[in-house]
Structure formats: C-alpha cells, structure tokens
Simulated scan of single mutants.
Amino acid sequence: MEIEVLDSRNSKVVAKCNVKSTTTIKDLKTQVHSSNKKLHPHRQAFRLEVKGKMLKDSDTMESLNLRSGSKLYIKDLGPQIGWSTVFLAEYAGPLLVYLWIYQRPWLFYGDSSAEISQTAHIAAACWTIHYAKRLLETIFVHRFSHATMPLRNLFKNCIYYWGFAAYVAYHVNHPQFTSPCMTQVYIALGGFLISELGNLSIHINLRNLRPPGTSIRKIPVADANPLTALFNFVSCPNYTYEFLAWLSFSILTQCLPAFVFALAGVFQMAVWALGKHRNYKKEFKDYPKCRKAIIPFIL
C-alpha cells in the first residue's frame, strides 16, 4: 500500500512510500531519507495530524490503522547532535570553569594573597565529584531512548550550566568569602555525598531496566540497594537526589548563588518530572498511585 508523507508546515507532499502493515515508523523514516537526503532519520518526527502526538519508531502501519492512501505528517526537527555529545559538553564545561576560577585567576580577583578557606576546598571537591560522576555516567551508564537532540539545545544548555558554574565559583572562591561553621559544613558534606550516591544508584537502576540497543520501557521499582527505595515515593528519584545534592552544597557554602542554582535546577527538574510522571501513568495502567513526581507526598 502507498502512504503519503506531507510536510506539517504547508501540507506539501514530501514523499510517497510503499509500505506493508508491518512497516514501522523507523522503517518509514529510512524510506523518506532515501528520497530526500536532507531529512536524516534522526531529523524526522511523524504525526497522524499536523499538531498531533509524535509517533514512536516502533509504531507499525497496522497499529496506527493506516491504509493505502492514508496521510502522515512529517516535521523536520532541524540539525541534530548526539545526546552523549551534548551531555559531555554540558558537564565538562562546568567542571573546567569552576576549577579554573577556584585557582583565583587574576582576571577575576586581581592580585590576592588571601588564603583559600577549607570550605572552598571542600566545595571544589564536591563540584568535581558531581560533574566527574556525570561525565562517567554519560560514558558508561546512560542508555538513551533517543539517539539525538536538536543542535540548538546544546548552546542553550551550555550557557545555563557554564554560566551558573562561573556565577557560583566566583562567589565561593572569592577572597572575602566567609565560611559557615565547620559543623554545618561537615553535616552538609554528608548530605551531599549520600545524595550523590543515591543519584548514581537510581541511574544504574534505570539502566538495568532497558536492555542494550532497545527503547523498552518498564515501571521503575526499587532494587536491593536501599538508596533506590525512593522509587516507592516518587517517579523521578534521580531528580530528587540531584536537588538534595545541590541543596546540601548550598548549605555547605552558605552562598546565595549556590541556592539560586539549586532553586533553578529543582524548578526545571520538577517540570521534567511532572511530564515523566504523567507519561508513566498514561503508559502503565497499574502504575503505583501513591507516587508523586519528585517530592514525596507533595509534588
């Protein structure tokens, strides 16, 4: 049977593809690419209607109730870049920026002989632990359901992460930085380390849910690791632990820019978590009703 592929912007015919009932959207993307080399499969998004929901690569013509003469709408997502590349750029930048400012370069502070406080040293170690962990997770742990993302997001995300790294580092490493009492520092350091371990535990748990080379989705549940028990209360405990880590860092440094970074982060993560929470409930009819999105019993 023949399917017409129309441009979602102007409804012009992009391609006419011969398909079978078992042909998937992924297969269709390959056909469209063969007739239009500009439209790489990763740039294509298919919908049943102009502003409808994006179809999954695994959807078949039969599952979508398509017949000969049916129409599908395609959107060009623009230039793409691999998720791993994006994450590496996002996380390597803040690490390098922070450690550079940690050295108190003349460009930021002029000539200063003031000693770097113990708290600033601990903060630099925490910052390094977090972003080094994220880099290693990107390389060895994460399995991405989508291979690419729009290239424009790389610049937006790097400005956010790199900019906040400079903002926080400048104040924490300033010669006039005043440390809170060391009891507060060490308690907050404990909270930071536990949160980082919790975040890593959740990422490993999520990785184990998805076999290599697939986009299979399952209901995430706690495993034998006690730090994954947060799955009993929220859908996205990785975000919960991430916020707790930056809240602990903020308490450790008692620095306003660090609190601003933590609040900006939890706001964005809450948006992501709420979206994932809704998708989980739609996709899985037996999804636990007691779970919240990111903050237990609240949100």
Rank of each mutant, 00 (worst) to 15 (best):
V185D: 08
V185P: 12
L227T: 07
L135F: 09
L39D: 07
P288W: 05
H174P: 11
V50E: 11
G110C: 10
A258I: 05
N199E: 06
Y167S: 12
A258G: 13
S63L: 09
Y280F: 10
A15P: 08
N157W: 11
N232L: 10
T23F: 02
L55G: 06
S70W: 03
I204L: 11
I202E: 07
D7C: 01
L151F: 15
R217H: 01
F297H: 12
L252N: 12
H203K: 03
Y287S: 07
K281A: 08
I81D: 06
I204N: 04
H121L: 03
P296Q: 09
S21R: 04
N279V: 02
V172Q: 04
L189R: 00
M149L: 11
R9C: 07
E283A: 03
W272E: 08
D223M: 04
Q254H: 13
Y160N: 06
Y160V: 14
H174Q: 10
L48E: 13
V221W: 01
H171K: 15
E62V: 03
D7I: 03
L136I: 07
A132M: 15
T253I: 06
N153T: 14
Y287V: 06
V13L: 12
N157K: 08
F261T: 04
L299H: 02
I116V: 14
K53R: 12
L247Y: 05
T23D: 07
F243R: 00
I202P: 01
G198M: 00
L154M: 15
F284W: 00
I81H: 09
K218W: 01
V97T: 14
R67H: 02
G78P: 05
D76K: 07
F164V: 14
I139P: 05
A270E: 01
S179K: 02
T228N: 08
A124R: 04
L77C: 14
K133M: 01
I74Q: 15
S215N: 14
S179P: 02
